[in-house]
Amino acid sequence: MEGIMFYIISAITVGGALGVLLSKNPYRAAMWMIFSFFGIAGLFVMLHAQFNAMLQIIVYAGAIAVMIMLVMMIMDRRTIETLKRFNSQFYWPALIGLALFADLAFLAYKFKIDTSNAGKNLAINGSNTQMIGEVLFKHYLLPFEVTAIILLVALIGAVVLTKKDIS
């Protein structure tokens, strides 16, 4: 049962990711991306990490994907339609991706991954909302705050850069 669910969810994730790459219309690519995010959220749920799953949906699908769609809507429609799916150097990243895939396949073969464990939660059990909070705010408080400041700097930087054009 868990195994079947795991395969369905991973098919959604990988299928969504393939859809992003292969669809020509950028809006449809964004829709496929959201589909893929749903798969990732499903994987988190299978690991009993409901908090992470919901954050995945709220932050990535609910906020970042909407931002991407909005930016595409503000761009000129004709510019978007003339965009090419791949640029002239697409084979280098493709090669890297292929190497990564070969590496993972080799590892899976070498360590003889047990497929009967597919979808089983072998990690910690129980509520993790509290645990995430404790780890972040007790043990890693300083790195966490520094990350927040870096994000703020990026935010203000974006405002400054775009303000200059308007004058």
């Binding site: 959201i34 409901q50 919901m54 709220i58 994907a65 769609m69 809507m73």
Partner: peptide, 25 residues
């Protein structure tokens, strides 16, 4: 029913905006 009801509801509410966005596109 789960321990994170509020987050779930907020997440689903956030996704409703896609219906509108896609309608425009």
């Amino acid at each position: 029913h789960s321990k994170i009801d509020i987050l779930y509801i907020l997440g689903m509410m956030g996704l409703t905006s896609f219906g509108v966005l896609i309608a425009g596109i």
